[in-house]
Design a protein around this nucleic acid. Structure first.
Lengths: 236, 236
DNA sequence: TCTGGCAAGAATTTCGAAAATATTGCCGTT
DNA sequence: AACGGCAATATTTTCGAAATTCTTGCCAGA
């Protein structure tokens, strides 16, 4: 139901969001060449509008533009995933540290509410929660609720962009996973530690992030172990 | 002499760079409305090309785009400067830590060379080095040389963007400064500590950054203490 | 005098054709 | 058969006019 065009929203920002979604969900594969003709048909906009959206995505490192040779979906690799993970740990820890220091009652209430929403949907979905788009949304909101009181727009924005980039890897691995570690207990433990202002919360969140990355490599490492630039084929 | 159009360089990326420079040097003032007509005359390009450049700058937080109401040069404020400073400290420390752990002989040699170039130009320029664009370039290169062996493209890119955003504040303050603290000894001390792999180097670089910010606020704080959105007037 | 709404003007946003550039395939030569 | 150069094709990049949206000023009604 979020397909209705909101007031004040431009077509360019609409296409930007759809392109972003398609890249993160790997409908547009890593390394794939993005030809304007094809994109024009797909999204039903003009060259210029597409170009603006791609320029924005290039600045977000979701696509790369090489001189006069057009745009390419940002490739994936284990090095990139590990680099991303380390950067995320740094920013998540700092944001959480500041958040725990400065968070007020409203912040705490929001964390509890976010957790509750996520937890309830999880029990309703059973074991397949990991594939559910709604759950992913609530999961993202829960993690954001933890750090949002850091009071640093700069750090929060960088964190958000890294979170998105990492999401592509999680998504890529999900179709190959045969088992999931029980995240519900992890989330509960993190939340309790955060609300109690325990310094150990920082280590919990770090392990949470690193273990997810390890799982991704374990199950989907073959997908991007020897990824070459341009290795993926465009949809013919 | 870098006005020659390099092969493989698009007009859009050229305009992007010029716009970036003009924003960082405050030729386009913080909060100023960016009208397409005026920009088209100034840079001699079409609407679409401008739009692409502005979209990129928006993703870099150097301009903001508000719905269907065009683009505005990102405003400045003390809160933003302090937020920026804290984020820079976090990233500079981490990059430097990794760099000191992993840097090899070539890295050390590059630091020495960068320092030498900066130092020599400094003695040649005397007290006015701070206003010199070439010195600013060498200064930037020296600081980059220190951290470039971190091995983390993600962290280095975030660092570079923050460095640029902070540069605008330094530049804004320079015209109001009446005295400068002697940076040459600071840089020498930092370099020596880094090459000796002394952990204290991290604290030195942090203080270096924070003191620069304090100086900026001291001399130019009045410029953005009560900055309102749209407070700056467009060039008539 | 004040408020609300409409119309004229100004600015942004979108569009697809035209120009510029890169890529591919062919042919002649060695 | 291998290589280099040239023409043909494919793709990207740029352009300015047209459509859309926002802003401003005016006028009628309370």
């Amino acid at each position: 139901m979020d397909q209705v065009k909101q007031k004040g929203e431009t077509r360019a920002s609409d296409v930007l969001q759809r392109l972003r979604d398609d890249i993160l969900s790997c409908e547009l594969k890593p390394g794939e060449k993005l030809r304007f003709e094809a994109l024009r048909d797909r999204y039903e906009v003009s060259f210029s509008t597409l170009r603006e959206a791609l320029a924005r995505l290039a600045a977000e490192s979701l696509v790369t533009s090489e001189g006069q040779r057009g745009f390419v979906v940002a490739p994936v690799s284990i090095e990139d995933l590990e680099d991303l993970t380390n950067a995320r740990v740094l920013l998540e820890r700092e944001n959480l540290r500041l958040s725990m220091k400065q968070g007020d009652d409203a912040w705490e209430a929001d964390i509890l509410a976010s957790y509750h929403r996520m937890d309830r949907l999880q029990s309703r979905l059973g074991e397949h929660y990991y594939f559910d788009a709604d759950w992913a949304q609530l999961h993202s909101q829960f993690h954001f609720a933890l750090v949002k009181a850091s009071g640093s727009p700069v750090l929060l924005e960088m964190r958000a962009k890294l979170f998105e980039r990492a999401h592509r890897y999680r998504r890529m691995s999900s179709q190959f996973r045969t088992q999931w570690r029980p995240k519900e207990t992890e989330h509960k433990a993190i939340m309790d530690a955060v609300l109690d202002r325990e310094p150990a919360a920082l280590d919990l969140i770090e392990r949470h992030i690193r273990e997810t990355t390890e799982n991704v490599i374990e199950f989907a490492g073959h997908l991007f172990r020897d990824e070459e630039p341009g290795g993926a084929k465009a949809a013919g």
